[in-house]
């Protein structure tokens, strides 16, 4: 960890004002990603601005809308009884992530901005990592890549995007509320992250001085038929090998609307829109669920140790859809 100047911000405005474009600056919220990567010398801020006192920690639920403040702790959002009932996918994606202690620390904005778990990224003694050192190569391609992405990756980077909660946000068409030097703006959550392409070091569309203030989304009655299914080696405290966030609007036995997002298998938050389309108007049964699952992974590009992921991913989608179909709406 390199030495840094430590400052506290008490409002979004003071946080942005404290930001220095000419010095590497990091915002500190829960710290569960930042401190981890600073100790590993992967992230080297010269200034750290503590934003834990700037507010943005309310949860607002109305008849048809939800707003989650950026600084809300995962544990507090997960414990919301009304949210559990009305959008189970959302609270499940939080409850199945990390550990009790980490969920008490980590904020919702920090969660969606967490960095990949790729071991070649996290260990600076590996010289080839395009995400960490642009142009240096990718050691994971020919290395040990059991955790790596089969969707949305590129020839420059196959790192997996690790968040569970982000899959719920992208599935539910959330928007992100952002503030920076140039003022406030809103963008669809699906536009927050960018696929690695040739520039895997660029992970989001946020400007360096921008802060997330919160997430907003419509809530509709049918969203109570939703769930987050996470498949992993052990039963808790592990990142997903594959996961699926699914929500279904069913009308007279046929699907009117489907939402499917995939975790653990893709380079960015991943919405399987073609698979969703394939379900519209169909009855949910083994065949239709398998069809949707096949479409979701039609373009998967596996490598040596993650060759199992397309099949695991398809089984996860099918299982999640059938489980959701069996739920009481």
């Amino acid at each position: 960890m390199r030495p840094f100047i430590f400052e506290r911000a008490t409002s979004p405005e003071s946080a942005i004002a404290a930001f220095h474009a000419d010095r590497a600056t990091s915002f500190l919220a829960g710290g569960t990603t930042l401190l981890d990567l600073m100790k590993l010398d992967v992230v080297r801020p010269e200034r750290v601005i503590d934003i834990n006192a700037l507010g943005a920690n309310e949860i607002e639920i109305s008849e048809d809308r939800l707003r989650l403040g950026a600084s809300v702790r995962m544990a507090d959002a997960e414990a919301q009884e009304e949210l559990r009932r009305r959008v189970p996918m959302l609270t499940q994606s939080l409850a199945l992530a990390a550990s009790t202690q980490l969920r008490h620390m980590a904020t919702l904005a920090g969660n969606v901005l967490q960095r990949t778990r790729c071991p070649y990224f996290r260990d600076v003694s590996w010289s080839a990592c395009n995400k960490r050192l642009p142009g240096s190569g990718c050691a994971a391609m020919a290395g040990f890549n059991r955790q790596h992405a089969v969707l949305g990756a590129s020839d420059a980077c196959i790192a997996t995007y690790p968040s569970d909660f982000a899959q719920a946000l992208i599935a539910l068409d959330a928007t992100v509320d952002v503030v920076g030097r140039r003022g406030r703006r809103q963008l669809p959550f699906a536009k927050l992250h960018v696929p690695p392409g040739r520039t895997p070091e660029v992970e989001t569309t946020l400007a360096p001085d921008e802060l997330i203030l919160g997430f907003e989304m419509p809530i509709e009655p049918w969203m109570s038929r939703s769930l987050y299914l996470k498949i992993r080696d052990r039963d808790s405290y592990e990142f997903a090998l594959a996961s699926a966030a699914v929500a279904l609007e069913v009308d007279g036995g046929a699907v009117r609307q489907a939402r499917i997002a995939l975790g653990g298998v893709a380079a960015v938050p991943w919405r399987a829109r073609e698979a969703e389309q394939a379900l519209i108007g169909r009855v949910l049964d083994e065949a239709s669920c398998q069809l949707a699952a096949d479409i979701a992974f039609a373009k998967a590009q596996p490598r040596e140790h993650n060759a199992y992921k397309p099949l695991l991913g398809r089984q996860t989608v099918a299982r999640a859809l059938l489980q959701a179909a069996a739920m009481e709406a």
Partner: peptide, 16 residues
């Protein structure tokens, strides 16, 4: 060694 940490070298947790 690749998984030389407790997030990647898996041992059971209480839930297991």
């Amino acid at each position: 060694y690749i998984n030389d940490n407790f997030a990647d070298y898996l041992v059971p947790v209480n839930a297991d």
